[in-house]
Amino acid sequence: MRPLTKAGLGLVAIIGLVQALAVMALTWPLAGVRTWLLLYWQPAHWVLFGLAAFVGLAFLIMLLVAVLRPSTTTKLVLANDRGDLSVSKQAVENAVAKAVAAAHPVKGVTVDATMHKTQVKQATIDAYSLEPTNLKTQVEGIEATAQGKLERLLGVPVKKIKVNLHPGTKAPGNAARVL
Rank of each mutant, 00 (worst) to 15 (best):
Arg2Lys: 10
Pro3Glu: 13
Ala7Lys: 12
Leu11Trp: 07
Ala13Met: 11
Ile15Trp: 09
Gly16Leu: 04
Gly16Phe: 07
Leu17His: 05
Leu21Trp: 09
Ala22Tyr: 07
Ala22Pro: 00
Leu26Trp: 10
Leu26Gln: 15
Pro29Tyr: 02
Arg34Asn: 03
Thr35Cys: 00
Leu38Ile: 09
Leu39Glu: 15
Trp41Asp: 10
Pro43Asn: 04
Val47Met: 05
Leu48Glu: 07
Leu48Tyr: 03
Phe49Leu: 14
Phe59Trp: 12
Met62His: 11
Pro70Trp: 05
Thr74Tyr: 03
Gly83Val: 04
Asp84Lys: 10
Asp84Val: 07
Val87Thr: 06
Ser88Met: 00
Gln90Val: 05
Val96Cys: 02
Lys98Gly: 04
Val100Tyr: 09
Pro105Phe: 06
Pro105Cys: 05
Thr110Asp: 01
Val111Tyr: 01
Met115His: 06
Met115Ala: 08
His116Ser: 11
Val120Cys: 07
Gln122Phe: 02
Gln122Arg: 15
Asp126Met: 00
Ala127Pro: 01
Ala127Phe: 02
Thr133Leu: 11
Asn134Phe: 05
Leu135His: 08
Leu135Trp: 00
Thr137Trp: 03
Val139Gly: 02
Gly141Pro: 00
Thr145Lys: 01
Thr145Tyr: 02
Gly148Lys: 08
Gly148Leu: 01
Glu151Ser: 08
Gly155Trp: 06
Gly155His: 14
Gly155Gln: 04
Pro157Thr: 14
Ile161Leu: 06
Asn164Thr: 05
Pro167Cys: 05
Ala171Phe: 06
Ala171Pro: 03
Gly173Val: 13
Ala175Lys: 12
Ala176Lys: 15
Arg177Trp: 04
Val178Asp: 11
Val178Cys: 02
Val178Pro: 01
Leu179His: 11
Leu179Gly: 10
